[in-house]
């Protein structure tokens, strides 16, 4: 049997979460004795198979068809379901990305199997897989088992380490019947920013009410620029209209786990902590020494962010 990773590419570029899923898939396949397969779906993407081989894949199945140029959940789910019907994998892994969040459950419904979303860890022991998934936005962690021959999981970005390894690396074509899409994509608007996407970023600089206004985000952006970081926001700053909701980190926003999270002018409400509590290192900058952020920050600076951040930017520039 096999472990299948559903590859995610956008405009012919593989997404980082795919490398994470492949690396984790390899680790699990080694533990369980399964083979690792990757399913690559799109149009004119066959060339990407080589890049996938670097992560220990035994076989890459390529579905290359003009009708698959744009991702829509109904069509992609049909392709996946056909592949699963052929392969009967023990486990199918997706990234917990915008695509994976939608495609995995749609496919799971088609296959009628169990799916654990947004996994922080997957282990194989005593002949079964165990999935850990945060509930109440990380205020608790549940361990789950999936009943049935096929299991599915989406993996939280930035949590699973990327590791290259050896694999058989065969490439095969897969050509299922492709249904007509019920959805037409009429426009795509990618943020023009050079900054990394929030959920994928290694470093995130976030600002909150303490910035005093939308103009305060210029400081955060300046810091993000020198660190190559994404810019996040607390709910308070989003509710005040200073920042778009897409930037909100927290229980009702994005859940992130970067290597470094710099929270400036954020008090650290439980709502916010739920979204960034799994960051590896947290820095808190706040003028209120009693702010809750200091209870979770690895490094806390009590001070005026209007002085601290410019100084920090200067210091970081010196290093570059």
């Amino acid at each position: 049997m096999s472990i299948v990773v559903c590859v995610e590419q956008r405009d012919g570029k593989l997404r980082k979460i795919t490398f994470e899923a492949l690396s984790e898939g390899k680790r699990l396949a080694t533990a369980s004795g399964e083979t690792l397969k990757a399913l690559l779906i799109g149009s004119g993407i066959a060339g990407l198979a080589d890049e996938l081989k670097k992560y220990g894949v035994d076989e890459v199945a390529v579905v290359d068809n003009e009708a698959l140029a744009a991702y829509t959940s109904d069509v992609y789910a049909a392709v996946l379901a056909a592949y699963i019907a052929q392969e009967n994998p023990a486990l199918v892994l997706f990234g917990h990305s915008a695509v994976g969040k939608e495609l995995a459950p749609r496919t799971a419904a088609k296959v009628d199997c169990g799916l654990v979303s947004d996994c922080l860890a997957v282990t194989f022991a005593d002949g079964d897989y165990l999935f850990s998934h945060p509930v109440y936005a990380g205020k608790a962690i549940g361990s789950y088992k999936v009943v049935g021959p096929v299991r599915m999981a989406t993996l939280r970005p930035n949590v699973f380490a990327v590791a290259e390894s050896e694999g058989a690396g065969a490439v095969v074509d897969f050509a299922p019947e492709i249904p007509a899409a019920k959805v037409t994509i009429t426009g795509v608007d990618m943020a023009s920013s050079d900054r990394p996407e929030l959920t994928e970023a290694d470093i995130i600089c976030s600002g909150g009410r303490g910035l005093g206004g939308p103009e305060g985000f210029a400081l955060i952006e300046g810091l993000a620029d020198v660190l190559g970081a994404a810019v996040g926001s607390s709910r308070a700053a989003v509710d005040a209209g200073w920042r778009e909701h897409a930037a909100q980190v927290g229980q009702t926003g994005k859940v992130v786990s970067p290597n470094l999270y710099v929270a400036s002018g954020i008090s650290g409400a439980i709502q916010h902590l739920a979204g960034m509590g799994s960051s590896k290192v947290i820095v808190g900058i706040n003028k209120d020494g009693e702010a809750n952020i200091f209870n979770v920050a690895d490094y806390g600076i009590e001070g005026d962010l209007n002085k601290v951040i410019p100084a920090l930017i200067e210091k970081l520039k010196e290093l570059q």
Binding site: Y144, S278, Y299, G300, V308
Partner: peptide
């Protein structure tokens, strides 16, 4: 098809170092 085996609270983060002094 998905069964909860157990739930636990995540390891609590501890307050780290407070850096003090001139900016």
């Amino acid at each position: 098809k998905v069964e909860l085996v157990a739930a636990e609270l995540p390891p609590a983060r501890k307050a780290g170092q407070r850096l003090t002094g001139e900016v």
